[in-house]
């Protein structure tokens, strides 16, 4: 069985985000991590491999050379191979162009199951994996919290308002990982030592058979207009005086100032 894991490198969840004078995020001194939901995806792939045995896990990512660190970590955890799409023309796009580039990569390798995270914690985007499945025209189950894979099909559990929904689909298929799916492992030292010897392939636009117009900012349907930090939160206001007056004042403030009722 061939499993593909879609992986994004993101800022550490504890990183303090700052903007420079042009409103670009300052990336110096920021710690990078594997997007936590993608780590669930990777862990699940490794568990399937441990259970079924004959599985090859390929991790696919797109981004600057720095992403190699995240891929090495994925290889150290237990992935077999990795591919990094590293080409300036591929960057600066949107979810659509990312999905086009990733799906074009995936078409070149055999796959039975694709696993991604349900959302990227940096830009909050939760579309790429879904779009990849659409382009490849394979079934998908999102926000999966439990997964059972057999030879040619899978059963995926997802939490819905009234309880748990179990969806069975035939392979090839794509699922996105939700928190709760598993607890990712630490990369063991043996894995760290082996990771150096595993394949980390770097591909560019020419390898994908796409044109410049289809990818990056040229192919994007979305454009980022501006970036800004949320306004610092003001201290709360305490109303003093008679309770009956306070309630009236509170209702007025909620209606007229906070505009939430």
């Amino acid at each position: 069985m061939n499993i593909i894991v879609l992986l994004k490198q993101t800022f550490d969840t504890e990183a303090k985000i700052q903007l420079d004078s042009n409103n670009n995020v300052i990336t110096d001194n920021i710690q990078y991590i594997i997007n936590p939901y993608d780590e669930f995806a990777l862990e699940e792939a490794i568990r399937i491999k441990e259970k079924l045995g004959d599985v090859i896990i390929t991790v696919v990512s797109m981004g600057p050379r720095k992403v190699e660190e995240a891929l090495r970590q994925a290889l150290a955890m237990g992935a077999d191979k990795s591919i990094l799409l590293n080409d300036e023309v591929l960057f600066g796009g949107d979810e659509h162009t990312a999905a086009v580039a990733l799906s074009q990569t995936i078409k070149q390798i055999p796959y039975d199951l694709i696993i991604g995270g349900q959302v990227a914690i940096d830009d909050g985007s939760g579309q790429v994996a879904i779009r990849v499945a659409e382009i490849l025209d394979i079934p998908q189950v999102n926000l999966v919290t439990k997964l059972d894979v057999e030879n040619n099909k899978l059963a995926a559990h997802r939490q819905v308002e009234v309880g748990t929904e179990v969806i069975e689909v035939f392979l090839p298929a794509m699922i996105t990982a939700q928190k709760g799916l598993n607890e990712p492992r630490y990369p063991a030292l043996k894995g760290i030592m082996q990771a150096k010897k595993k394949e980390l392939k770097i591909l560019g636009l020419a390898d994908l058979g796409l044109t410049e117009n289809q990818v990056g900012s040229n192919g994007a349907n979305l454009k980022v207009i501006s970036t800004f930090l949320p306004a610092p939160r003001n201290a709360g206001r305490i109303l003093s005086g008679e309770i009956s007056e306070n309630v009236q004042e509170l209702v007025r403030l909620l209606r007229e100032e906070a505009k939430i009722i």
Binding site: R72, Q73, Y186, P187, L189, I192, M193, K196
Partner: peptide, 15 residues
């Protein structure tokens, strides 16, 4: 080196 950094990061994270 890369290997030493990965070992440091893993042990730090674990610790």
């Amino acid at each position: 080196n890369e290997e030493q950094k990965m070992i440091r990061d893993m042990v730090r994270h674990f610790a």
